[in-house]
């Protein structure tokens, strides 16, 4: 079993590395698309703005899509979830990976932006990645934008911050969270455990 974290040069990935390591995931980094070869599972972390993130990630686009289509387990985190959409209000003109139809929009006026802190989940689908997670469990969010899928059957969980905010999506072998499981205490580690377990299958 090999879990690979995509390191596209946008900064600190120790947190996700340490958290996966802590739950027995024994991850490694991929700094080039060819490093994704042989991966049983791939983590796409997200740092920075949508546009600069995509600018760095785009060299991985083809390889990531190929692995996704071959059924390799994928986990997107924070902006790593947002880049799965087609585009974002944060960076007009920048194309996302487009695996999920829909766009990324700004949190509504009148709420604290960025949403920064612990918020509770409303579970829409009891998917495998949410095993051990209950309605109301809290996770750590830091973001100003959120994904709005055209087809809401991909939404696994939401959270409330002025509006219902997409907190997790699930499509085939892809799971992604707007919150940071690696910074969300024991409940976050539970999600990473589920991911590692699924990668072993």
């Amino acid at each position: 079993m090999t879990i690979v974290i995509v390191d596209y040069g946008m900064g600190n990935l120790f947190s996700i590395y340490n958290a996966l390591d802590h739950v027995g995931g024994n991850p490694r980094f991929a700094r080039d698309p060819q490093d994704l070869k042989g991966a049983k599972a791939i983590v796409v972390p997200g740092v920075g703005a949508f546009g600069s993130c995509m600018a760095q990630l785009s060299r991985f686009s083809e390889s990531l899509l190929q692995h996704f289509q071959e059924g390799v387990l994928m986990l997107g985190i924070c902006v790593g979830m947002q880049v799965l959409f087609e585009e974002s209000e944060e960076s007009p003109g920048a194309a996302g990976l487009g695996w999920i139809s829909g766009r990324v929009v700004r949190l509504p006026a009148g709420v604290m932006i960025p949403q920064m802190g612990w918020n509770c989940l409303k579970i829409k689908q009891h998917v495998e990645m949410l095993d051990g997670i209950s309605e109301g469990d809290m996770f750590y969010f830091v973001h100003s934008y959120y994904g709005l899928p055209e087809d809401d059957s991909v939404v696994a969980a939401t959270t409330e911050h002025g509006v219902d905010v997409t907190a997790a999506i699930c499509r085939d072998n892809l799971f992604a969270t707007q919150f940071h499981p690696e910074k969300s205490g024991p409940k976050g580690l539970q999600i990473l455990k589920n991911f590692v377990r699924a990668a072993r299958c």
Binding site: F14, Y140, E182, K183, G185
Partner: peptide
């Protein structure tokens, strides 16, 4: 920080 971040999973 390095030592802490190995086993502490909050900000």
């Amino acid at each position: 920080i390095k030592e802490t971040s190995r086993s502490v999973f909050v900000p």
